[in-house]
Amino acid sequence: MRLSYPANVKIVLVPCTGKVDVMHLLKAIQMGADGVYCVGCLEGACHYNQGNLRCRERVERVREILQEVGLEPDRVRMYNLSSGEAPTFVAYAREMTELIRRLGPNPLKNSQPAIRVEEAA
């Protein structure tokens, strides 16, 4: 179909959305990404039974965290589609892009975290 979707969307491939962790999403926002969304298979159609359902729960947890720290929860969202639905994929990419444009840039973009990992001696 050769459909095009907004160029600002960068794709990170995972074997299943069940692999997506709270920290993956949080880190993206922490480092200044304006928004992150997960696109999983349709609910009830996960090859691994619950991967997309686990992802949805993690997305919900990250949305709560964003609310707690003072950011808009809508910067992180979950979408579902089947692998044959290219037009839906494009529609979601456009919807998310428009949503993020309305929210504006991530205010964390202008500063960097100062976190040091203290390894066990």
């Binding site: 920290m23 949080l26 880190k27 922490q30 950011l71 975290p113």
Partner: peptide, 12 residues
């Protein structure tokens, strides 16, 4: 997760 939360909240 907690360190990321604290970092974001304080920077905001």
């Amino acid at each position: 997760v907690l360190a990321a939360e604290i970092d974001m909240a304080r920077r905001l």
